Computed example of a mutant assay.
Amino acid sequence: MAAREGSRKELGNKAEDVAARYLTRQGIKIIARNVYSKGGELDLIGMDCEVLVFFEVRFRGPSSFSTGAESIGFTKQRRLIRAASFYLHRHGLWNMQSRIDVIALAPGTVKQYRIQWIKNAIQANL
Protein backbone atom coordinates (compact mmCIF):
# COMPACT_ATOMS: atom_id res chain seq x y z
CA MET A 1 0.00 0.00 0.00
CA ALA A 2 2.85 2.39 0.78
CA ALA A 3 4.24 1.94 -2.72
CA ARG A 4 0.83 2.77 -4.18
CA GLU A 5 0.57 5.92 -2.05
CA GLY A 6 4.07 6.92 -3.17
CA SER A 7 3.18 6.50 -6.81
CA ARG A 8 -0.06 8.44 -6.29
CA LYS A 9 1.90 11.31 -4.74
CA GLU A 10 4.43 11.18 -7.59
CA LEU A 11 1.57 11.28 -10.10
CA GLY A 12 0.10 14.29 -8.29
CA ASN A 13 3.44 16.09 -8.32
CA LYS A 14 3.87 15.38 -12.02
CA ALA A 15 0.37 16.73 -12.74
CA GLU A 16 1.17 19.90 -10.79
CA ASP A 17 4.42 20.29 -12.76
CA VAL A 18 2.51 19.98 -16.04
CA ALA A 19 -0.11 22.47 -14.84
CA ALA A 20 2.53 24.96 -13.67
CA ARG A 21 4.34 24.83 -17.03
CA TYR A 22 1.04 25.24 -18.90
CA LEU A 23 -0.03 28.20 -16.75
CA THR A 24 3.37 29.87 -17.12
CA ARG A 25 3.04 29.63 -20.90
CA GLN A 26 -0.40 31.24 -20.56
CA GLY A 27 1.10 34.24 -18.73
CA ILE A 28 0.48 33.21 -15.12
CA LYS A 29 3.26 33.93 -12.65
CA ILE A 30 3.39 31.01 -10.20
CA ILE A 31 4.22 32.37 -6.74
CA ALA A 32 3.69 29.29 -4.52
CA ARG A 33 3.17 25.54 -4.69
CA ASN A 34 1.68 23.07 -2.23
CA VAL A 35 0.72 25.59 0.42
CA TYR A 36 -0.58 23.84 3.54
CA SER A 37 -2.59 25.54 6.26
CA LYS A 38 -5.33 24.81 8.77
CA GLY A 39 -7.78 25.32 5.95
CA GLY A 40 -6.28 22.68 3.67
CA GLU A 41 -3.86 22.46 0.76
CA LEU A 42 -3.58 24.83 -2.19
CA ASP A 43 -1.86 23.14 -5.14
CA LEU A 44 -0.67 26.27 -6.97
CA ILE A 45 -0.99 30.00 -6.35
CA GLY A 46 -0.34 32.45 -9.14
CA MET A 47 -0.88 35.96 -10.43
CA ASP A 48 -3.07 36.55 -13.49
CA CYS A 49 -2.35 40.24 -14.12
CA GLU A 50 -3.62 41.84 -10.89
CA VAL A 51 -5.69 38.83 -9.75
CA LEU A 52 -4.42 36.32 -7.17
CA VAL A 53 -5.47 32.86 -8.35
CA PHE A 54 -5.66 29.68 -6.30
CA PHE A 55 -5.39 26.61 -8.56
CA GLU A 56 -6.74 23.15 -7.78
CA VAL A 57 -5.00 20.62 -10.05
CA ARG A 58 -6.84 17.37 -10.84
CA PHE A 59 -5.62 14.44 -12.91
CA ARG A 60 -7.83 11.59 -14.07
CA GLY A 61 -6.52 8.54 -15.90
CA PRO A 62 -8.08 6.86 -18.92
CA SER A 63 -10.11 4.42 -16.79
CA SER A 64 -11.76 7.15 -14.69
CA PHE A 65 -15.52 7.60 -14.90
CA SER A 66 -15.37 11.34 -14.19
CA THR A 67 -13.27 14.25 -15.35
CA GLY A 68 -10.91 16.02 -13.01
CA ALA A 69 -13.29 18.95 -12.68
CA GLU A 70 -16.24 16.68 -11.92
CA SER A 71 -14.29 15.05 -9.11
CA ILE A 72 -14.40 18.19 -6.94
CA GLY A 73 -17.33 17.67 -4.62
CA PHE A 74 -18.95 20.00 -2.12
CA THR A 75 -16.59 19.05 0.72
CA LYS A 76 -13.48 19.71 -1.40
CA GLN A 77 -14.93 23.03 -2.60
CA ARG A 78 -15.52 24.07 1.00
CA ARG A 79 -11.93 23.10 1.94
CA LEU A 80 -10.52 25.11 -0.98
CA ILE A 81 -12.53 28.18 -0.01
CA ARG A 82 -11.37 27.86 3.58
CA ALA A 83 -7.72 27.39 2.55
CA ALA A 84 -7.86 30.39 0.19
CA SER A 85 -9.52 32.53 2.88
CA PHE A 86 -6.89 31.50 5.42
CA TYR A 87 -4.10 32.36 2.95
CA LEU A 88 -5.60 35.80 2.24
CA HIS A 89 -6.01 36.50 5.96
CA ARG A 90 -2.53 35.28 6.92
CA HIS A 91 -0.89 37.45 4.24
CA GLY A 92 -3.10 40.53 4.74
CA LEU A 93 -4.48 40.33 1.21
CA TRP A 94 -8.22 40.71 1.89
CA ASN A 95 -8.48 43.69 -0.47
CA MET A 96 -6.81 41.84 -3.35
CA GLN A 97 -9.01 40.50 -6.11
CA SER A 98 -8.83 36.69 -6.12
CA ARG A 99 -10.47 33.59 -7.55
CA ILE A 100 -10.28 29.80 -7.45
CA ASP A 101 -9.59 28.02 -10.76
CA VAL A 102 -9.41 24.33 -11.64
CA ILE A 103 -6.83 22.76 -13.94
CA ALA A 104 -8.13 19.36 -15.06
CA LEU A 105 -5.64 17.01 -16.74
CA ALA A 106 -6.30 13.78 -18.60
CA PRO A 107 -4.26 11.62 -20.97
CA GLY A 108 -4.44 13.05 -24.47
CA THR A 109 -4.82 11.42 -27.84
CA VAL A 110 -2.84 13.94 -29.91
CA LYS A 111 -0.74 15.51 -27.15
CA GLN A 112 0.48 13.85 -23.96
CA TYR A 113 -2.20 15.61 -21.86
CA ARG A 114 -5.56 17.23 -22.39
CA ILE A 115 -5.67 20.32 -20.22
CA GLN A 116 -8.88 22.09 -19.24
CA TRP A 117 -8.56 25.41 -17.41
CA ILE A 118 -11.79 26.45 -15.70
CA LYS A 119 -11.52 30.02 -14.46
CA ASN A 120 -13.51 31.00 -11.38
CA ALA A 121 -14.63 27.38 -11.07
CA ILE A 122 -15.45 27.62 -7.40
CA GLN A 123 -17.51 30.62 -6.43
CA ALA A 124 -16.83 32.25 -3.10
CA ASN A 125 -16.91 35.70 -1.61
CA LEU A 126 -13.18 35.83 -0.95
Rank of each mutant, 00 (worst) to 15 (best):
A121S: 01
N125D: 13
E10T: 15
S63L: 09
H89E: 14
G40H: 02
E41C: 01
S7T: 13
S85A: 15
F65Y: 11
D43Y: 01
R114A: 07
R58I: 01
I28R: 10
G68H: 04
I122W: 01
M96H: 11
A104I: 05
A104S: 14
S85N: 13
R114N: 14
W117T: 12
F59S: 03
I118G: 08
Q26C: 09
M96Y: 13
L11D: 10
I118Q: 13
F65H: 15
C49M: 14
I103N: 02
R33D: 08
I100V: 05
Q123D: 12
R60Y: 04
V51W: 00
G73N: 12
N34I: 04
R4E: 09
A32E: 09
Q77M: 12
N95P: 06
A3H: 07
I45C: 04
S66I: 09
E70P: 08
Y113L: 02
S66Y: 09
R78K: 13
H89T: 14
S64C: 07
K38D: 11
S63Q: 13
F65V: 14
W117Y: 15
K111P: 00
T75Y: 10
H91V: 00
N13V: 09
A32I: 04
A106K: 14
W94C: 07
R99S: 07
M1I: 06
E10N: 15
S63C: 11
I31L: 09
R99Y: 01
